[in-house]
Design a protein around this nucleic acid. Sequence first.
DNA 1: CTCTTGCTTAACGATAGTGACAATTATTGC
DNA 2: GCAATAATTGTCACTATCGTTAAGCAAGAG
Lengths: 101, 101
Amino acid sequence: MLAALADPTRRKVIELLREGPRPAGELAQAVQMSAPALSRHLRVLRAGGLVEATAGGDDARLRLYTLRREPFTALQAWLDQVQAFWAEQLGSFKDHVERGG
Amino acid sequence: MLAALADPTRRKVIELLREGPRPAGELAQAVQMSAPALSRHLRVLRAGGLVEATAGGDDARLRLYTLRREPFTALQAWLDQVQAFWAEQLGSFKDHVERGG
DNA sequence: CTCTTGCTTAACGATAGTGACAATTATTGC
DNA sequence: GCAATAATTGTCACTATCGTTAAGCAAGAG
């Protein structure tokens, strides 16, 4: 999943999708890349669970891509866990009342 | 920087460093990997600004590795920006009182 | 049915990351 | 100075990734 985010093109796609669902072709044009190349990137994003392709409405030839929430939530959780490193440094008076002390 | 996080071994290192600074050798042993191999991973982590090597105290042969805060803060900021996607979906009544309305 | 559109998959060459072994640098102790 | 330890860098083979061209597949238009 982080491997999917490790590519600038794919991050650009994610930022474009932030403004709403878009078809694959529009994304390819936006990132100045051939359709097959972007299709591969979208495949990686799908594999990482970051985006989802819907069948679309008007024209079933269009594949609408949308951001999925879960992986970002998971990343947030991991990040919070890592950042606890500094939280503990700022104040040792964490509520480790588990032991009653 | 995200490329540095995209590797399981390197994430493991980060999680180990969460518990405090450690010398390179100890990390290599913890991830069951040869010293040169881990040294390369540490190089990537340094290049991504995720960790920092200190000269150490007692034995100057030891290179103590520590987590750096900034990249995680930056990632947090980017993540918040992406997650605003859903925040807007949940309620359009965001405090966009900037315009007075 | 045929043609075009939108997208994905296959095959190919180029590029970069990964780990093992060997060699190098820096530090400690005698 | 010499040996031992801690870590990095060089070189090799292996694998994965990236973008391009060509082909395949589903959905609309005539």
